Simulated scan of single mutants.
Amino acid sequence: MYDNILIPTDGSETVAETLTHGLPIAETNEATVHSLYVVDSRMTAAASGDTSTDLERALEADGRDAVDAIEQEAEQRGLDTVTDIQKGTPAKTILEYADEHDIDLIVIGTRGKSPREKVTSLGSVSERVVDNASIPVFVVRDAGTDGK
């Protein structure tokens, strides 16, 4: 049913919770796990000169650590993995990656937001992915949230 499963990562603790759901689905389906980290181009564009370059390098290093952690966990379960770090707007880049790599399922984490946070934010990456995906999206709420 699922041959290619994408688990986007931002390197946060929420990803650990996402893996507890995504990796068993991959095991059951003998799927390849794709791990993607997106260096948010809006952040690097906001910086200037050397600061921009330093920030981009730091984000890429964080991304490498994040996708390597997923790769290690997936490989411990005997799963094939593909890792990638791309630059762009996170939700858009995740959806483009899914289309380009024949992804069958996206497993993405989210942090629960209070009603006030929802009103003041521009929307989360996971919400944008769900709203625009043409494939199933499994959203995993961070277990540390209080359900608001």
Rank of each mutant, 00 (worst) to 15 (best):
G147E: 07
A26I: 12
G49N: 11
E60Y: 12
A31D: 10
Q86F: 00
A58Q: 11
G49K: 10
L36W: 07
D102H: 01
T93C: 07
A31H: 06
I25P: 03
M1E: 07
T20I: 04
D54V: 12
I94M: 09
G144D: 11
R128K: 15
D99Y: 01
S134N: 15
S121A: 09
M43I: 09
L79Y: 12
G147R: 13
K92M: 06
R57Y: 04
T14L: 10
G123H: 12
D54C: 00
E100Y: 03
G112S: 08
D10K: 06
T89F: 11
L23F: 05
T51H: 12
T110W: 00
S124P: 01
G78M: 03
T120P: 00
S126M: 00
T18W: 10
S35D: 07
M1Y: 09
S114Y: 02
P8T: 02
G88A: 11
E96I: 08
A74P: 10
V125M: 03
D65E: 14
I103S: 06
A26V: 12
L23R: 09
K92I: 07
R116I: 11
M43E: 13
T89H: 10
I7A: 05
D3L: 07
D99F: 01
R57D: 13
T32Y: 01
T53N: 11
E56A: 15
D84K: 09
T110R: 15
P8M: 01
V125S: 01
V137C: 02
L95D: 03
S124L: 00
D131Q: 13
A133L: 08
H21A: 07
S41W: 02
H101N: 15
D68G: 05
V33P: 13
F138E: 02
S52R: 14
T18Y: 11
K92W: 10
I85P: 14
V139M: 04
V130C: 07
V129Y: 02
R111M: 05
L55F: 04
P8I: 01
E100F: 03
A74R: 09
R116E: 13
A91M: 01
V125P: 04
K118P: 00
F138Q: 01
L79D: 08
V38E: 04
T20S: 15
T110P: 03
I85D: 06
D3R: 15
F138M: 03
R111F: 04
A69P: 03
S114M: 06
I103G: 06
A98G: 10
P115F: 02
T44N: 04
E17S: 12
V82T: 12
E30T: 12
A26K: 10
E117S: 13
T20V: 05
T89I: 15
A66L: 06
R77M: 09
D104R: 10
G49M: 12
V33L: 14
Q72Y: 06
E56L: 04
D3I: 00
S35C: 11
P8Q: 02
S114R: 09
R64Y: 12
E75C: 05
E100K: 14
P24W: 05
R141H: 10
D68I: 03
D102C: 00
H34I: 05
I94Y: 00
K92T: 14
V137W: 00
A16H: 10
I7G: 04
V129R: 05
K148L: 13
